[in-house]
Design a binder for these strands. Structure first.
Lengths: 330, 330
DNA sequence: AGAGTGTGGGAAATCGATCTCCCGAGGAGC
DNA sequence: GCTCCTCGGGAGATCGATTTCCCACACTCT
């Protein structure tokens, strides 16, 4: 009762292993349709499944892609990983996801494990724009690597990201249109490229002395802290742009607790358009990433073995999703 | 510049491939310490990495475990998968996670993909206590399978779960101790074993005519709906037990919006102790699963090839985590 | 009819690590 | 001093699919 091998299928169909392989693996080689049918029938009858280890050994590819994200506790990264998983599966592969626990060291370990393991390529959402570079660069020598959502300097690798500057402009213009001009930014994780870019874009648009609250990490708890500070200055502010949804959720709940109405007194926006936005009343305006398109592009880049591609950053267009936290009519 | 093979290491160390393999793979066979050192040095120097495809082909095991969860949109399942990932990595393996999108059909597909793929064993959190059985049973013929967190009848497989009845008792006793006796249950997904068990335990304790609100799915939105219904009956109720944290979150936010104070007028408990509990004020009392211990047990079961083990359910003891949603002093 | 062209399909090498023999050397026992 | 045993370690088979030759046959063209 051992599993049937290609040899068994070939024998049952009365052909050689070579022919059976050509038929089942779909090698672009002409095979007599009659033989092909016999092989397929035999395979079906025997319940044949190709042995991936053997194929991997012979072809040198595993059909598995690895992803390293900063933290799976942030639902945005879960969504992101899911978008990549969709693409990978559509291509008949598997995805292995690792969590870097927001630590550059653990990130390096995870990258190492995945590479030492059995992946054809790696998609990395780097924890830090500076400190993640070396590990990624080292990894890129051993397998194709693409950065995703964030870049890391010194990585020597392409990055597929959102156009954060454009996103910030969308948000600010939207708030301006609503007559909100005293806008504060609540930003986190300046060490990440996305955090830094969002802050930079905000500062560029509103000037150095616009109110900003900088937090260490993209967590809801940090959003709470920000909420307290914003509540104190409620008189001077009529809108808050948050650098991440998780921040916005914490912020809104804290504001409401302080009897600040949203969007009545202060409008709030998030960033990333995760599902947790629906946790609160009101639902929160946010920026949607074109994750499917980005994931597709990332996988295309992984496959094109152009490993000498320069350290470039591709930016995808964001989309503004208006909800009641900025426009009560929405 | 091709990757070094075991042969190269053996040559560099002046030994045979067999010896090099014994040293590097740690086969329990005595090897001269001097030779072992030479092999290790050579391996390090050459930057040797064992080719997992070759090893997998030869040994017939891949070192990869697959997990299928009902939905990664529910943070509890993300935590659960993470707990399993920890254990698997500790054992030097990899984890592949799949999302069944709360559908029995997609679940069957994912199981099929993982098995066809390259996993040594499968951990499944079945979507349905009845409908998931056949797919699991079929899978169990091809590879070791362990159910996790929920069981499925007809699966012919062991399940490692929480003792939901005990958990419900913990919650009800806690509420009783606080003087809350008019308790309602908000439950979801009766098709899952956990949903059904929680409802059954509640009914057993409080009687058939205790207030229950049944919802189709474990989502925050469902929690909102429940919130509206509970708010209507606020006079008759002083506590609500939710069958899942995501429900509690939606419920609390809706109650508060309806000017029902928590825990003042109505105490609320969750289930699963996920991190989103901290999203709201007040933090929500919940039940913590001993996920690490459960994951460890599940992997032990996977490894013991006792595939003829009967269809049994192992239940782990829950832990009550008291927070301000029931006891404002907490 | 013979040479040239093309096409389907088989035999055997190959991927790299592991594992089963089996041999040789050194030590113990009588 | 000889036999037996133990233990380290090497040669080669093996896992199963892919892929590279290369042969054989059929058909066309001169």
């Amino acid at each position: 009762m051992t599993a049937p091998r290609l040899l068994d299928v070939a024998a049952a169909a009365g052909v050689s292993r070579a022919t059976a392989s050509r038929v089942l693996a779909g090698t672009p080689r002409n095979v007599d349709p009659e033989l092909a049918r016999r092989v397929e029938d035999a395979a079906r009858e025997l319940g044949y499944r190709t042995n991936h280890s053997a194929r991997a050994l012979r072809t040198g590819t595993t059909g598995t892609v690895g992803v390293v994200v900063p933290s799976l506790a942030n639902p945005y990264f879960v969504q992101l990983a899911d978008a990549i998983a969709q693409q990978v599966r559509a291509a008949g592969g598997q995805l292995v996801v690792s969590d870097a626990a927001n630590s550059v060291e653990i990130e390096a370990e995870q990258i190492e494990t995945l590479l030492g393991g059995r992946v054809d390529g790696l998609v990395v959402v780097p924890v830090s724009a500076t400190a993640s570079g070396p590990a990624v660069r080292a990894a890129a020598k051993r397998a194709p690597v693409v950065l995703f959502d964030r870049w890391a300097s010194g990585s020597g690798t392409v990055a597929v990201t959102l156009d954060n500057a454009a996103a910030m402009r969308l948000l600010l213009d939207h708030l301006d249109d609503l007559g909100r001009h005293r806008i504060a930014l609540v930003a986190a994780d300046q060490a990440s490229s996305s955090g830094a870019e969002r802050l930079a874009a905000f500062t560029a648009a509103r000037g150095e002395d616009a109110t900003t609250v900088l937090l260490p990490s993209f967590t809801t708890d940090a959003g709470r802290t920000a909420g307290r500070r914003i509540a104190e200055r409620r008189a001077a502010i009529d809108a808050v742009v948050c650098g991440a949804d998780v921040l916005a959720v914490g912020l809104v709940s804290t504001l409401q607790r302080s009897a600040v109405s949203v969007p009545g007194q202060i409008a709030v926006t998030g960033f990333d358009d995760t599902e947790i936005l629906e946790l609160l009343d009101p639902p929160i305006t946010s920026i949607r990433h074109p994750l499917a398109a980005m994931a597709e592009r990332a996988l295309t880049l992984l496959q094109s073995t152009a490993r000498d591609r320069a350290e470039t950053v591709e930016r995808f267009a964001p989309q503004l999703v208006v909800r009641a936290s900025t426009d009560a009519a929405a």
